[in-house]
Design a protein around this nucleic acid. Structure first.
Lengths: 171, 171
DNA sequence: TTGCTTGCAAAAATTTTGCATCTAG
DNA sequence: CTAGATGCAAAATTTTTGCAAGCAA
């Protein structure tokens, strides 16, 4: 389950002149233990760490998220409004994709191997190196459709599933 | 070139209990005249409008961008760090996708018809209605690779192409 | 040791909101 | 007319930064 053990992370970082600090290790661990399909924003990660007794500053959280995304260890997700979310960037063949309802921000996940093939084709054509490849489908969910979206939907109606920004909580 | 004429936009809005105001029309026009491949953030749109002598408040810009994205007239892009960008959500068969270098934020566009097919399959399976379907590929560009990314890349090196957040300016 | 990292607090950047006023339908 | 929209200014949110002190390699 854990993709990055202490040493592979260390190498990954050292190779770039970065260091493996306890904070970075802790943060990566959180992501490794996150059930598939969950993802965290900077703030959520910060609060989660705090709730676990880990005292890592919010700046460090932001800096770590950036670092790990730029390296390709994490992937940055743009699901609903507000903040970015992050999750582990699994080996290519395990990457999944997202379908989001713009009404309730509910997120569905799906896999499709041909997506990576498309990404690879483009990457090859452009002569660049692929880090992450994600398909994002924005849609309107069944519940909103049943409520009569678009014309009959009360302007401030909220899906029963809508709860703030998130689609999935840390269980 | 103009997808939405006055009346189709009006219908699109009225159908949802929204009104066609001069501000909304002006903003849509900006997007319709934006060369393909360009996209604007809220701030950029606001400044552009100002430069054209249009006095539309920043709040209205934000409110309009949200409205139009939720309706499916605009699509929200998550290219590089910082702010969201928006562009016209062209008819399905003209949608394009993005490849972004995480080092220089340079954006390449590409088309691939099979992507929409994948999106449609998922949308059908989930019983939702598709609004937008975009593949985002994050990568490291050739210039960074030539500089020796990852190991040899000076930590604060910037691609020659890097210029702030944007990949393309309003010409 | 040396230079990358951290935490803190302050600042910047981005987005949202309340409310009085205005206006499209 | 009336519900929806705007502009303004203030507030909230989200993210970045400078700098002294700490620590991995």
């Amino acid at each position: 389950m854990a993709i990055y053990k202490f040493n592979s992370l260390k190498n990954e970082l050292n190779q770039r002149g970065c260091r493996l600090t306890p904070q970075r290790e802790t943060i990566l661990n959180v992501f490794q233990n996150l059930p598939e399909g969950n993802h965290l924003s900077a703030e959520e990660l910060y609060n989660f760490l705090k709730s676990q007794g880990e005292n890592i500053s919010l700046s460090t959280v932001y800096r770590t998220l950036h670092l790990m995304s730029n390296i390709g260890i994490l992937r940055e997700l743009e699901l609903a409004e507000g903040h970015k979310h992050y999750e582990l960037n699994l080996p290519r063949n395990h990457q999944h994709h997202h379908l989001i309802c713009l009404q309730c921000h509910k997120t569905f996940e799906f896999n499709d191997e041909s997506i990576l093939k498309i990404g690879n084709k483009q990457v090859e054509k452009a002569g660049v190196e692929l880090l992450d490849c994600q398909l994002t489908v924005r849609a309107v969910c069944m519940e909103a459709l049943q409520m009569g979206w678009p014309s009959l939907l009360p302007s401030n109606w909220l899906c029963s599933r809508y709860h703030g920004e998130k689609s999935g909580e840390l269980s």
